[in-house]
Design a protein around this nucleic acid. Structure first.
Lengths: 225, 225
DNA sequence: TAACGCCTCCTCCTTTTGAAGGAGAAAAAG
DNA sequence: CTTTTTCTCCTTCAAAAGGAGGAGGCGTTA
């Protein structure tokens, strides 16, 4: 505020002669409703411009190389190449690239991967108009912004040891309501082994029973319904 | 096709003199991204016009009375008044009103309620552009359209007996991973009674175990995560 | 090579769950 | 006022799940 006042005259002159260039935004989302919505919202801003739209992760990476936007808004769940992979590819080519992740679920397990991939911010799909615009401006200014709900998930997920491949298999069958015996048969292992994996799962998820494990797994998005 | 050919000349004349009035659409969704997206997509069509936008169910009903649109696109999950209730209110005032339900999940339990409330069609939020426009035109023409995934859910839900209040309580605690003993304590009933309710639940959900019950309940949206 | 994590399997033991039967009381619907 | 539904509780019994502890094979990495 003070800065603006101080240099108000000068700034006005500068703006008239050479207005600040708009923030160039790339949007990637396979949901046409969301994609179009973001385009409409962002295009309406004077200080922003949508330079490209992608419907999947692969297209997102290609268009990023073509247009070199200031900010990429990237959906987590996309066909061909998911959001995390897309962000990784982009940031491998240019570590300074700034990506904001779009996600429907604040419980999404992939947000951990997204942070590791270098995402600067998260936007839930139920974000308000101002949240969206604020977020873009802040990230463009070099800040990051994580919704409060995400902090706890990140903490939980970073501290918690990840499930091993086999444990993941067992968990998925658990979530389909299979019994130990059924799991053993389908995975071609003994029932004892299944129990063994289950104990590890219970420990890692910090639960006491298979039922609770299914509940937690479903809540955290560890298994697809 | 044959009809169009037959009266092509006449139709052309009519269109030049008095073009068919556009389909007047009301859109209700609390997600600004989706709302804006639909507005953008629909506004671009020559034969459609967005006459009002609502951010919650209450607003939706009010704006419907004010504008009397041909079609209302209504999100299921909205604050203040959910989609089902909004559609009920609207159709109570005018049984000829046509509503299309927007939903994120094709497993959403509320779709049964929406059908009962008189919804004419369903649109998943990952629908393609053409699906959306087709759906609106078909409903305006008096047709209905239900995505194939919905048919089975409707069949399952309409045939299945609903859970009693007590059974619902037990199911919710089940989904939180509680044991029979814990459920009994919290509900101030004996463990045998809990088991009794569980048997009814298993029968109604057509499952064999508590774990499977939680899996199915979570899939069908019978319990909130 | 040694340490480590992962997957596999074992035994012994306790607790929990689920099936199957019946049965009484209260409330809602007819 | 009946009938139906719902909720409550009982017994008995078999099966499933879970806890504790140990152990061998295998591949990777320090």
């Amino acid at each position: 505020m003070k800065f603006e006042r101080k240099s108000l005259c000068g700034a006005a002159n500068v703006e008239r002669e050479a207005p600040a260039p708009p923030i160039r935004v790339l949007i990637a989302d396979d949901h046409v409703m969301v994609l179009e919505g973001l385009v409409a919202i962002i295009s309406r801003q004077k200080d922003m411009a949508v330079v490209a739209q992608a419907a999947n992760g692969q297209e997102c990476v290609e268009l990023w190389h073509e247009h070199r936007p200031d900010i990429a808004l990237v959906d987590l769940r996309m066909p061909r190449l998911d959001g995390v992979a897309a962000i990784e590819l982009i940031r491998r080519a240019d570590p300074a690239a700034r990506a904001i992740v779009l996600t429907t679920y604040d419980t999404d397990n992939d947000i951990v991967g997204a942070v590791k991939a270098g995402a600067k911010a998260f936007l839930l799909k139920d974000a308000r108009r101002d949240d969206i615009l604020d977020c873009i401006r802040r990230v463009h200014a070099g800040e990051t912004c994580l919704p409060p709900a995400f902090t706890s998930i990140l903490a939980a997920n970073l501290s918690n040891q990840p499930l091993t491949c086999r444990e993941q298999n067992v968990l998925e069958m658990l979530a389909r309501g299979k019994s130990n015996k059924e799991i053993a048969t389908e995975l071609h292992i003994s029932e004892t082994t299944v129990k063994s994996h289950l104990r590890s799962i219970f420990f890692k998820l910090n639960v006491l029973s298979r039922t609770e494990a299914v509940a937690v797994a479903s809540r955290r998005g560890l298994v697809k319904l």
